[in-house]
Amino acid sequence: MEKILVVEDEPDMVMGLKDNLEYEGYEVDIASDGEDGLAKILTSRYDLVLLDVMLPKLSGFDVCKRARKSKIQTPIIFLSAKGEELDKVIGLESGADDYITKPFSLRELSARIKAVIRRTSAHDSPGDGERAQIGRLTVDFNNYTAYEGKQQVKMSLKEHEILHHLWHNKNRTVSRDSLLDAVWGFNYQPTTRTIDNFILKLRNKVEHNPNNPAILLTVHGVGYKLVLG
């Protein structure tokens, strides 16, 4: 049985989510503030976390950032009444896998949960021996690690997943929609800025001259291409 942690401080929302998730066949754990939620994420195994943004003691954004900093790769879906584009960008860049704006339908939530669990489960087993030399980096996609020489280079889970997808399609143009679907699987379309920020971070790590990229290219109006010999 898959286990979901719900980090939410509104009692009615908690009970509604718990009842419906258990009806769907999930085991459900509850945390009512950010500090308790983070402690549970760091010490227990979950298949997914539903994380409110506005929480007592520690915001959802901070919970997500600290979990990712601690190498926790459990998929996280933000639940938030804050539906502005900037809030979604901040949520995604903090390491979340999806962002749902309140109010939402239970059918939509169920579909998002299943899609994220399915997608992240596939990423958990990228295959044996998936190592690649990409510019300055030696990347181990199995262990989500990257090195420049003997020095480990810090990369977020999303950076690894973007680079992994581009590597699987090396020397071919990958559309923005294809990349979004493979890495985020959103029903809504994030802004160009969301992906461009990740591409910029990756260029700074793989390119010998990030200001004149020769490996991770933008194909204007279409998407991106990872060029490898």
Rank of each mutant, 00 (worst) to 15 (best):
L21V: 09
E22N: 10
E22M: 10
E24G: 06
E27D: 14
I30P: 09
A31V: 03
A31N: 05
S32M: 15
E35M: 10
D36T: 12
G37F: 06
L38C: 01
K40M: 12
I41W: 00
L42G: 11
L42T: 13
S44C: 14
R45C: 09
R45G: 10
Y46W: 01
Y46S: 03
D47V: 02
D47K: 09
L48F: 03
L50W: 00
L55S: 01
P56C: 08
F61H: 09
F61V: 09
D62K: 14
V63S: 00
K65T: 05
R68Q: 04
R68N: 08
K69C: 03
K69N: 12
K71N: 15
I72M: 11
P75S: 07
I77N: 03
A81S: 13
K82V: 14
E84L: 07
D87A: 08
K88I: 09
K88F: 06
I90K: 13
I90A: 10
G91W: 03
G91K: 02
G91F: 05
E93P: 03
S94D: 04
S94P: 07
D97L: 00
Y99A: 11
Y99M: 11
T101D: 04
K102A: 06
P103F: 06
F104C: 10
S105E: 13
S105T: 15
R107C: 13
L109Y: 05
L109G: 07
S110D: 12
S110C: 07
S110E: 13
A111K: 12
R112G: 01
R112F: 01
I113D: 06
I113G: 07
K114Y: 04
A115I: 05
A115H: 01
A115T: 09
A115W: 06
I117S: 10
I117E: 12
R119Y: 05
H123M: 15
H123V: 13
S125D: 14
G129A: 12
E130S: 09
E130K: 14
E130T: 11
R131N: 14
I134A: 08
R136W: 07
L137E: 06
T138F: 14
